[in-house]
Structure formats: C-alpha cells, structure tokens
Design a protein around this nucleic acid. Structure first.
Lengths: 151, 151
DNA sequence: TATTGTTATACTCTATAACTATA
DNA sequence: TATAGTTATAGAGTATAACAATA
C-alpha cells in the first residue's frame, strides 16, 4: 500500500477536520527548517512580539491556557534567553514579557521560514483561498468565544 | 479587567491561528453536552464509522499518528465497549475495527450534539462561511500532505 | 524481509489546588 | 478579598525502539 486512500477520511465536522489539519500543520512545521522553535514556542513568541509587555496571565488567556501552564513554557524560553520577564513597575505582582534581541532574531528567522511554508501553501491551494481560510479561522475563533461565554 | 482585549492577538500565520482555534474548539466541545466523549475519541469513532473494518495502522495514518499511539486510545474505547477488534480473516496480523451497537449509539448521540454546536457556529459566522471554512480546511489538509511528502 | 499490533519507556503538554507576594 | 506568578502533582497524549506473530 504505497499511498493512503483518502476517501472516507473527510467528515463534515469542523472540530474533526480542524484537529487533523493541526496535527498535520505541526508535523509539516516541525519537519521544516523553521523547526529550531517548537510549534507552541513559535506561537508564544509571536504573541509576545505582537503584544510587547503583556503579562503572563493575559498571554495565557490569549492562548486559552491556564496561567500555570504558561510557566514552564516561559521558563524554557527564558532559559534559551529568548525572552525576559521584567518586573512591572506599577503592579509589582506582574511580569512584563519582552523578547530579547536574541529572541527577536530567532523569531524573525523562523517567521521567514514560516512565510516560505505559507507560500507553498498559497501555491498549493491558491493565494485567495489561503487568505480566505485565515480570515475564516479568525472568524471561527470569535464565534467560538461567543459560544464559550454562553455555556 | 473584565474582558480580554482582543486586539493584537491575530497573527497572519495559518499555523498560529489554527492552533488557537483548535484549543478553543476543544474547550467548547468539552464544555458542551457532547462531552461524554473526549475530543480525540470522537475523532477516532467518527473515522471508524466512515471506514468500518479499517485496521489500526491505517487509522493511525489517517490521523497522522504513530501506530503505537493508537493502541492506548483503542484500548480505552474497547474497554468502554464502544468498539471491537476483530481478527482479520485474510491477514491475521491485523485487526478490523468496528463500532459496537453501543458505540454507534454513543457516537450518534454525540454527533447530534456536535451538529447542534455546529449550528451555533453557523449562526454566529453565517452558514456560507461555515461551509466554506470546512471546505478550505480540507483543502489545506491536501496541500499540507503534498508539502509533507516533498520535504 | 516487511508489516501489524504491542510493550516499555520517556517526554511534553496541560490542569487543579495550594502557596507567596502584592493590590 | 482578589490577582499575578509559582509549585507540586497528576493525567493525557505522543514518540521511539524493540518484540512476537504473520505475510
């Protein structure tokens, strides 16, 4: 059996398809040259880049994780000297998270390779489809947040 | 801070947005009444329903997991008497996987509740958008498989 | 030789609950 | 009292390597 039969693996449920797509995406990311960064680490550094100075709890909420789950992730990133925890001057309970110069360089480098990967996706599925997909995934997030806060 | 500020949490990278959407989707699924089934279990049972008699290795490949990772998942499902491993008559190395009556009922029941959830998503983001999103996610899977087999 | 399923083992990710320090 | 961060701990989920049975 040289190739997998693809019939019958497609459901009509978003959750199922999303899960499979994400396993695949992680695998492709990890197999690419962007993989000096773990997939989850890439996400964290990207969010800190977009929100410099964000604190740990807010970052956890962005990713829909528990505060305590952020700690070992941030420990690892700090150990690699890719981010700094700076005591927040006005609220001394909190840390402000910032990328180090080294972390910025690492992220920029990975981003370039992710962009190369995204280009291949754009090529494969068509650039309009790729952009539409991104927009719809973000819309889905908003919808899910609405449903979550209801239930 | 009653609600999370949503600005600055959207990247323009599929991988990042996919990851966050999936964490959210799992959480919403788990918080819903469909949650008698773990999100991963639901995926497995759905795929067996679509491919009755599939063997463990093929199922693992469908989900892009290692064969050995399927074992404990299937053990759990078998323990709950939701699926059967039947020795394949023609290839006695392999098991054919089948839902039990009980497993079918359980899955049908969860599917109904997933469909209800999907309806809420359709309502929230518009039915056309929801359908388009599903189609694009499946297209993404195909594209990712192409890229994976290259690298 | 190759493949199917399994085991042993280890690693990663995540959550809960309880703690501390600050607010 | 409430919140930010941490710790201890436990539970999932996953992979790698090696094995037995079968092809």
């Amino acid at each position: 059996m040289p190739h997998e039969i693809n019939l019958g693996t497609m459901t009509d449920m978003l959750g199922v398809e999303l899960r499979i797509a994400q396993i695949l995406a992680d695998r492709v990311f990890s197999g690419s040259s962007a993989a000096k960064l773990a997939p989850g680490h890439f996400t964290v550094l990207s969010l800190i880049k977009l929100n410099p100075g964000i604190n740990q709890s807010s970052l956890a909420r962005c990713m829909h994780l528990d505060r305590s789950s952020m700690v070992p992730i941030l420990d690892q990133l700090q150990e690699k000297a890719w981010l700094e925890r700076r005591r927040n001057a006005t609220d001394r309970r909190a840390y402000s998270l910032h990328l180090t110069r080294k972390g910025s360089r690492m992220l920029d480098n990975s981003e370039r390779q992710v962009i190369a990967l995204e280009s291949r996706i754009s090529e494969a599925m068509g650039p309009n489809n790729r952009d539409k997909l991104l927009q719809l995934i973000q819309q889905l997030q908003v919808s899910l947040k609405g449903i979550e806060s209801d239930q």
